[in-house]
Write a protein that binds this DNA or RNA. Structure first.
Length: 262
DNA sequence: ATGGTTGGAACCCAA
C-alpha cells in the first residue's frame, strides 16, 4: 500500500501549528516529519494534529532549540534516537511503521557562519555530527529505511542558486559536501528527490533576510528524502511545496514530499 | 563588503 511522506523544518511547531494543520488538510501526507520544533515534547500541540487525523506521534524535544517529531495517520512504533556528539540535543528520532519500514528524522546542525572548525566550534560540531552518522550507518547498513530531514547541506551545484558564490558559505562548502557524501555512501542511501528530478535547480529553503525571496530566488536544497538501496525503487512522486514559503508567517523551509509503494 | 529577518528566552543566541 503506497504511503506519502513529507519532511518540513517548521521553525517552531507551536507558533506554526496552524501551518502544520494547513499542510495536513491540504496535502494529507500519511507521515509528516518536522524539524526545529523548538518545544519540549509535552508542549507540542499533538491534540490539534490528532483531531486532523494524525493521532500518532514520535518525538524528541528540548526547550527553545532543535526538536524533531514524526506525525502519522498510520500507527508508529518509537524506534529510538541517537544522541550524536553526546550533547543531549534533540536532533534525531526514528519510528517504525507496521510494514517494518524505519523512518529516520534528522536535524543536522547548521554550523554557524565561518566554515573553519579552528575558529568556529559550531562548524566542527556539524562535521563531527556527520562523521558519527557515517560511522553509524557503516556499522549497520540500513534496510527498509527512509532518512529525511533538514540536513543543512545543499550538496549539488544545482542545489544552490549560485555554486560559485556559495563555495565558501556554510551549507555548500566542499568539506561539508564531502562529509554528507560519506554518510550517503556508508548507508548506500539513494537521494529519492534527485532520482525523480535528476536535472535542474531544486530549492527547499529561502532566507528570511531577502527583501523578496520569490523574485530573488536565492534558494538552497537543504531538506532531503533518502531511501535505503533495497527500497529505493519504491520511491517516486517527489514534490517540493514552494508555495508554502509564501504562506502567512512562513517557515524559511518548505515541505518536501515523496511517495513509497511499500 | 555588508546587512538583511525570524524565534525563543530572557534582554542575546541560534539560524
Amino acid at each position: 500500500m503506497p504511503f506519502t511522506l513529507a519532511t518540513w523544518n517548521i521553525n517552531s511547531v507551536r507558533l506554526r501549528a496552524d501551518l502544520v494543520g494547513r499542510l495536513l488538510r491540504e496535502e494529507a501526507p500519511d507521515v509528516l516529519c518536522l524539524q526545529e520544533c523548538k518545544s519540549p515534547v509535552d508542549k507540542i500541540p499533538a491534540e490539534v494534529f490528532a483531531a486532523l487525523g494524525y493521532p500518532h506521534m514520535v518525538a524528541r524535544g528540548q526547550k527553545g532549540y532543535n526538536g524533531v517529531a514524526i506525525l502519522s495517520r498510520l500507527p508508529l512504533e518509537d524506534a529510538g534516537h541517537r544522541d550524536m556528539c553526546g550533547k543531549g540535543d534533540a536532533r534525531h528520532v526514528a519510528a517504525r511503521l507496521e510494514t517494518g519500514v524505519t523512518i529516520h528524522n534528522f536535524y543536522v546542525p547548521a554550523g554557524g557562519d565561518e566554515p573553519d572548525r579552528t575558529v568556529n566550534e559550531k562548524f566542527g560540531h556539524k562535521l563531527d555530527f556527520l562523521t558519527e552518522m557515517r560511522d553509524w550507518f557503516r556499522d549497520g547498513r540500513p534496510e527498509k529505511s527512509i532518512l529525511v530531514g533538514d540536513l543543512n547541506i545543499a550538496p549539488r551545484e544545482d542545489d544552490v542558486w549560485s555554486h560559485k558564490d556559495l563555495l565558501k558559505v556554510v551549507s555548500h562548502t566542499p568539506i561539508e559536501v564531502d562529509h554528507l557524501g560519506q554518510v550517503q555512501e556508508a548507508g548506500a542511501w539513494v537521494d529519492v528527490t534527485r532520482a525523480d528530478f535528476p536535472d535542474g535547480k531544486l530549492y527547499s529553503w529561502w532566507s528570511y533576510r531577502a527583501r523578496d525571496w520569490d523574485a530573488a530566488d536565492r534558494g538552497r536544497r537543504l531538506d532531503h528524502v533518502w531511501a535505503s538501496a533495497d527500497i529505493a525503487a519504491a520511491g517516486h512522486g517527489s514534490r517540493i511545496l514552494r508555495a508554502a514559503r509564501g504562506w502567512d508567517k512562513p517557515s524559511d523551509h518548505v515541505p518536501v514530499f515523496a511517495t513509497f509503494d511499500l
